[in-house]
Amino acid sequence: MLGSGILKGLAVTAKNFAGSYYDPKRMVTVEYPEKATPVPENYRSFPFLVTENAEDPMGSLRCVACQICEKECPPQCIIIEKSKDKKPDAAGKMQLYPAVFNIDTSVCMSCQICVEVCPFDSIKMDQVFEVAATDRFTDLLLTREKLAKPNSYYHKIHPTEADEVDTRLTAERQAAADKAKTAAAAKAAAAAAKPVSPTQPAPAPVAVAPKATPPAA
């Protein structure tokens, strides 16, 4: 009969109306400033710099100021100046560090190319999206102090990716340490072999030894 569809429709909306008061699952609205939907793990906004030590962020930046990201950045929003001196990195090796590392987030297009080219896993994508500012020159140009965030933060926002990076880095550092250890062992063995050599009647290796030592060191 004419009108039965209208009555059915009215019943549906009446159910919606009543249900919206006692069934929170029906409501799709998340009242944003008070509550926020969690962002997906792979969500990205702007880059940040990973530091090893949260206590001393400027002293433990993974970045070695190689400037690859600066050269690759399509909109050229990264500005890096190398340091004059060197500092030991996490593995204890002496490295340069960025004296200036600025990212202009008003220019950045969040393409992630800097992250992909970084050979040191030192630049990663952040997830902050509340970036409104009153002055673009002071608030949107992020200096290295604002960019530096600890590795634990990286673990918090991208857990899977960070675990993978950490296993790789520890493996690499382990390999480097093992290599250094074997090299040291070889050196020690060589050094141990030296005092023994005078007792043996072999003059030829003594003459070669000074030439062979520099590469071993």
Partner: peptide, 10 residues
């Protein structure tokens, strides 16, 4: 407000 409630909005 009513239209919102009829459509499961606030």
């Amino acid at each position: 407000k009513l239209l919102g409630r009829l459509q499961n909005r606030l």
